[in-house]
Design a protein around this nucleic acid. Structure first.
Lengths: 201, 201
DNA sequence: CCATTAAGATGACCTAGATCAATATCATCG
DNA sequence: CGATGATATTGATCTAGGTCATCTTAATGG
């Protein structure tokens, strides 16, 4: 498959912007990417964080244009995977088609979990869930699940979880006071995993 | 394509339940269906309402098992569309594959809009958005966009929108007081469409 | 290397919507 | 058809998280 081996992307550079013609999906090679939409009244909604090894950009398929924008939260590298090639290939290799369906379906499942989180859980539960998710994704990348660096700002966390920065800050504060977490700026250390899991449920 | 022409489904009967093996997606023929998940702590989250002409059941593709349950909110009829046939066919007919990708991608876009709604909008804005969505979907079915019957209960509306029944009730009350809506139980009449659209944005 | 700006933390206060409770209305079935 | 349980409305009160304001710390650049 022809894959564009992307040059490094600097912090705050867009991989693509909402409205652009959809041509490709992308794989994160290094660094981290956030997806977000801008609603018609101008406010930003962060829809996802993408870590190395993860695929993003599938939101563009429906309308032939991306509905999200995607930008590097830190210096990053991405692989471009042209969708047309993918379609041709997936006709020749049915398992690839299936794989791709699964990726999209997984995205749906993820979004629905976020919907539940937003409509049913408290600020603490939301933050705990995000931390656990990042921890798990780090584990899958052979990294530590207990000590890691958050690639995103407090503002991005708040935006993603439907909370204000202040609330995110306070929740981190409470988590530290309970000796569940050690927080040093973006550096996180999980001290009590059971408690975190219990909160995230 | 072999399509199961479903016998009528009675109110509160499941089309499928979470955990069942994924075999098919479904099209609503008449009546209305709600999808919901049950989170590990037992609470229900309504993830979507499906009206005649709409497709549901795509959440099962990722894990070969449905993650949602789907049940009839009133007497309904659905068509079963076996996914294996769909896959075979979509290899022969690339446009069908594309069409199916689009359906899934649309689902992603929908979910992301709901995420924004839940994390950024007030109770009134949420309810207005749902009403407008149902109105629009009725229009596409050649039905009135101004007078229609809500197929779902207040509890389902609240659950879907991350609000309590009481709040939903009060919002309907306020909408009536403002002469924007006429509400008689589940029967809705939109009196001021501009105001509704403004709220829904 | 300091200046400027952005990011984060913390406190005081307020409000939208939750919770609790009482009542009213509807649907269903024996 | 009247009784019973589900569904909806309405009111009184409470609270999680928002808002606003201040202060601290960390990046960035000239």
């Amino acid at each position: 498959m022809k894959i564009q081996r992307g040059r490094p992307l600097h912090k705050d550079r867009h991989v693509y912007s909402a409205g652009e013609e959809f041509k490709s999906v992308f794989a994160v090679r290094s660094g981290s990417i956030k997806s977000y939409t801008v609603s018609n009244d101008g406010q930003e909604q962060v829809t996802g964080f993408h870590l190395p090894g993860e695929i993003f950009g599938m939101d563009g398929i429906a309308h032939n244009h991306y509905t999200n924008s995607a930008l590097a939260m830190e210096t990053a590298a991405v692989c471009e995977i042209p969708f047309s090639k993918l379609q041709d290939l997936s006709i020749a290799i049915p398992s690839l088609q299936r794989h791709f369906f699964q990726l999209m379906s997984k995205e749906i499942t993820n979004d629905q979990q976020l919907i539940t989180l937003l409509s049913k859980n408290s600020a603490e539960e939301r933050v705990a869930t995000l931390l656990l998710s990042i921890s798990n994704r780090n584990l899958r990348r052979q990294l530590s699940g207990t000590r890691f660096r958050l690639p995103m700002s407090r503002a991005d966390i708040g935006n993603y979880l439907g909370l204000t920065v202040e609330t995110v800050s306070r929740v981190f504060g409470r988590f530290q006071k309970q000796d569940m977490l050690k927080v040093d700026k973006k550096e996180i250390e999980v001290l009590d995993f059971d408690k975190l899991r219990a909160l995230a449920n």
